[in-house]
Design a protein around this nucleic acid. Structure first.
Lengths: 150, 150
DNA sequence: GTTTTTTACTTGCATATTAAAAGTAATTAT
DNA sequence: ATAATTACTTTTAATATGCAAGTAAAAAAC
């Protein structure tokens, strides 16, 4: 097995008790937060949806990260209504609480990396009113949540 | 060369124009933001200081990340006053603007990862008044900056 | 109802990155 | 003059990544 499945691992190795370090232990890589971003800002909900986003994640990495995020309670996998082969990935409340992290990442990137401004339709809205944007995204996720109770 | 030195590389490969993705292209790993944290919250300023922090970074990784962060304008390396072998690492304004990202990471980690609360002396202060804490840290960095102008 | 397509993965392999330990070279302290 | 610091670099082994191809179940098309 090249991409190790942490689920079969027993130890959840933490490098220290620092909350920043522990957060990075979970999603400190180039892909995990992009999956969270897609669930948060776009309509990305199935495995296939994730493979279609701009950064072109490899399918083995995607499967590994979805499992890792699920193991860590950041996303949940539900059965897709009316389709037995598809899964429906959702952000858990724990995952939704990463919104502020992503907002700050987006603001920093927008400020220091050229061309990113126009390409992220949300950045303008975020910069205009950060807490309003946060509430809006959180509300969207909650509403979707209600729609998915059976 | 096992740890590739990006400085000799020409291409700055960006996976997409998304500001979140581009940010992660630079510091989306388990170590870079810990270096930024140490410069931001602690008195860590020399190579040796970094090797002493709790997460025990390997020296080759440290050297690589310091170079990468410097190449990306997030930190600067100054000569250490009165010592020709030491270097003095500092956060640039671009690096200091990562404070909000680290604050949100710390808040998330503090909320969802046990034991991290008591171990980060700053977390209480952050939670009590986020923007006050931000201003304080920013001011500290600016003052240190002034002290280091010759 | 049989073939084709879609969907969600898994596998194999080459390459890249990481970690741990040891080594080096230039100061700096004793 | 000798020992210790400091800031790296190198070596080697273990892991992780990226790409291409493969698989198995279900769904859609014919």
């Amino acid at each position: 097995m090249q991409v190790k499945n942490i689920k079969t691992d027993e130890k959840a190795e933490m490098r220290s008790d620092c909350p920043i370090s522990s957060s990075l232990d979970i999603f400190g890589d180039k892909w995990s937060l992009l999956i969270v971003r897609d669930l948060m800002l776009y309509k990305t909900r199935t495995y296939g949806d994730f493979t279609k986003s701009a950064e072109k994640i490899a399918t083995n990495i995607l499967a590994n990260r979805l499992q890792l995020l699920e193991d860590n309670g950041i996303i949940t996998k539900l059965p897709y209504p009316g389709n037995k082969v598809k899964g429906l990935y959702r952000l858990s409340p724990k995952g939704a609480d990463l919104i502020p992290v992503l907002i700050e990442l987006a603001i920093w990137g927008g400020k220091y990396i050229s061309n990113s401004d126009e390409c992220s339709p949300f950045l303008k809205e975020v910069k205009k009113n950060k807490s309003k944007f946060l509430k809006k995204v959180m509300l969207n996720l909650l509403q979707e949540d209600e729609n998915n109770r059976d």
